[in-house]
Design a protein around this nucleic acid. Structure first.
Length: 299
DNA sequence: CATTGACCTGT
DNA sequence: CAGGTCAAT
């Protein structure tokens, strides 16, 4: 299956890159930790298997792709020390959140189609179920490899997903999202499919946002997730319930406990974007995941 | 604009 | 209720 895999080492301190944390922090949904504590996952057309090297600040990676694919996926071309320093300078209030999550990186999906459909599954849902649904969708793509009993598929193309029937997804437990996903798949195909989607990555963030909002079923939050995690618009700041908690605590105390409306979404999102610029998405990820992990104890 | 309820399913 | 969105009011 797929020929001989690539095998290479990535040398980097854990505090700058924690592969498990980055892979399981809600940016991608196809990674698993195996019994022998390796991380195995897929993104787009590639699969990966990552192991921590004993007593060293390095990883051993096996993959269907060359090192550049892995490096791009985890955005290793960005210097985490530099990013952290800049973020703390622009927003000292971020420091405890960044320190609480060492090694958490903003990722960069190699497949806008996968990210697009993954976040369609995420609305009003929790991570464990999103994971199941994304893996159901991935199973429509060809199998790339089996690693430690884990089936790794190439994420299907738009044309394939556009042919899936709503009833079929209902049977797989997609609930009401079965309808939106199949409809949006067809709408996406009629707009030009993957090529159209990728073109949104080349547009300014604001225009890509408008395009995405044109899909019935994609609101501001999903549009920002797709822009940030799938289209490399790193200035996008999705505001979900967790970020809203953090944002009101840090920046809008007079809005604490109030509902998130369209206007407040715009204001909070733009505020964070203006504060951190192209690093806003990275800041958002630190805030988001720190809140996911610690929200119980904070309440 | 802001508010409200419906919407699948699983913990 | 969960990393929301839409339609109606």
């Amino acid at each position: 299956m797929g020929g001989a895999p690539y095998s290479f080492e990535i040398e980097i301190p854990r505090r700058y890159f924690d592969v498990g944390l980055s892979a399981s922090s809600g940016q991608m949904f196809r990674w698993k930790q195996t019994a022998n504590s390796e991380w195995v996952g897929a993104n787009g057309k590639h699969w990966f298997r990552v192991r921590v090297l004993d007593g060293r600040e390095a990883y051993r990676v096996e993959s269907s792709g060359p090192p550049t694919v892995f490096q791009s996926l985890f955005r290793l071309d960005w210097d985490a020390a530099d990013v952290t320093e800049t973020l703390t300078r622009l927003g000292p209030e971020l420091e405890p959140y960044l320190q609480a999550m060492p090694g958490l990186r903003l990722t960069r999906s190699g497949d806008a189609v996968e990210t697009f459909f993954s976040f369609l599954c995420s609305a009003n849902n929790h991570i464990s179920r999103i994971t199941g649904m994304v893996n159901h969708l991935a199973a429509y793509g060809p199998r790339l490899e089996v690693v430690d009993v884990i089936d790794l598929h190439r994420f299907p193309r738009v044309a394939t997903l556009a042919k899936v029937e709503e009833a079929e997804l209902r049977e797989k437990g997609f609930g009401y999202r079965a309808a939106t996903i199949t409809q949006i798949a067809r709408e996406l195909e009629s707009r030009g499919g993957e090529a159209y989607l990728r073109s949104l990555g080349a547009m300014p963030y604001e225009r890509a946002q408008i395009e995405l909002l044109g899909f019935k079923g994609i609101g501001r939050k999903l549009a920002d997730c797709i822009a940030l995690f799938g289209l490399d618009h790193t200035e996008a700041v999705p505001i979900d319930t967790h970020i809203w908690q953090a944002a009101t605590r840090l920046y809008f105390p007079h809005w604490q406990g109030t509902a998130l409306t369209d206007r407040k979404y715009e204001e909070a999102s733009a505020f964070i974007r203006n504060r951190f610029g192209r690093l806003a998405g990275w800041a958002q990820q630190a805030l988001f995941y720190e809140n996911v992990v610690n929200w119980r104890t904070r309440k």
